[in-house]
Design a protein around this nucleic acid. Sequence first.
RNA 1: GGCGGCGUACCCAAGUGGUUAAGGGAGCAGUCUGCAAAACUGCCAUUCAGCGGUUCGAAUCCGCUCGCCGCCUCCA
Length: 481
Amino acid sequence: MSITVYNSLTRKKEEFVPQTEGKVSMYVCGPTVYALSHIGHARSAISFDVIYRYLRYCGYDVEYARNYTDVDDKIIARANEEGVASEVLAERNIEAFDADMAALGVELPTKRPKATETIGEIIEVISSLIEKGFAYESGGDVFYSVRKFEGYGKLSGKKIDELESGARISVNEQKQDPLDFALWKASKPGEPNWESPWGPGRPGWHIECTAMNIKHLGATIDIHGGGKDLIFPHHENEIAQSEAATGKAPFARYWLHNGFVNIEKEKMSKSIGNILNIRDALGTQTYEAIRLFLLSNQYRSPIDYTNDSLKEAETAVERFYKALDRIETEYPATVESKPKKSALGKRMEPILKAMNDDFNTAEVFGNIFKEVTRANTIMDAATKSPDKRAATEVEVTVIRALFKEAGKILGTLDRTPGDYFDEIKSGSGVDPDEIEGLIAERAEARKNKDFARADSVRDSLLERGIVLEDTPTGTIWTVKQ
RNA sequence: GGCGGCGUACCCAAGUGGUUAAGGGAGCAGUCUGCAAAACUGCCAUUCAGCGGUUCGAAUCCGCUCGCCGCCUCCA
């Protein structure tokens, strides 16, 4: 079975064949660290995290680089507003980003280069572009001459002449052509700067990705990812820089782009003031629910983040963990025993088939929840007819193993039920001892057939969002969000 | 204006040429329960924005119409 991916460059699904058998090189544009990361960064990171996880699951040796752009106009502007050095601001936001990613269950890429650690390579690439006639120096700045690169526009489908007629490009006297973009910017007083053949300055926006790609992954990489908005101009310019500098095409063999996250049907933007930071989102729901929600949509489609849809996702996560908890409680042997490989393989087939089709995680969840229903159904049947217990144990062993496999791929539904429910309970701020005490009181009342008293305990707990469930093995409680 | 995309049930959403159109949430009814909750069962799109066309056969391909969105400027 092979993986099929939608390639933005060709605008169609293609079979994924890495340039070196068994190995994959992948680069994803990371954040420009001028502020806290928002839910859109989370979507990009999680989408490519799942791709990274799945490629390794399929046995590939994956070199995965995700950069930090830590020198940039916005960082400088923000640092000036706050009255701190731009290095300090950048470092602080890198730490925050790393913490957010960890909280979302995003695995660490194999490489996490910073632009400021790549200045030497950036200068080399720019020098080579000047030598080859693709770039020119002008008053301490260096610009890329867009018209010199024949394939300009091939990723975004734009034509240079049409871009030219668009009046929105600012005119800069230093440029030979308004479409040319900066590779190197001469520094103004007080700005971070590095020595270069063109005087002190700093890199332009697109060149750092080219340099980091070449340095860490080589002239031609397998997968290049990022948000859809980066297609133009960022990725278009990366192609122009990289292919011109190395003389090798394609720069990236497969271009993958994730869709945007809207908030309550509106685009996130500073002017609307509806930017949802990752840490705020994590304050109201678990990482499992956030990931399940984001991965319930095809990664290329836009997605609408609403309070209701996140609540629904959390309910679905709860349903999953309840079933897993029931399997492990009623069939404790499943925790230790392993299913037959062939049986698990057969059950995994639809999930792998979905993943192989451009990482269709939504369909994977469909399969997981089908298995949830099936597990509950056969366990119900075995409770009624104990002679079915042995066969049921074999089946739920397979299902539990399937859940674990899927959890590894998706990075959600991958904890123990205990850990999940503990987080929900501790996040609610209620005192477990108090609840347990009330449950004991209610149990006593029920034993004495004092149902009025038992129900009043239950009702008062329900008002606080605590739901009691009487099971054969005792009363359990959960917190409703 | 140029380029790209979307429109599937009450809501979210998968399915992109061929058995009964996944799954989640909500709702209704039943089983279970002291009553609940949870779980299970059944019901909930003869139909996929509309209209034409191609085909033995289309939600899936083509054309047109309507509606919505993104990019073209910093942006994940």
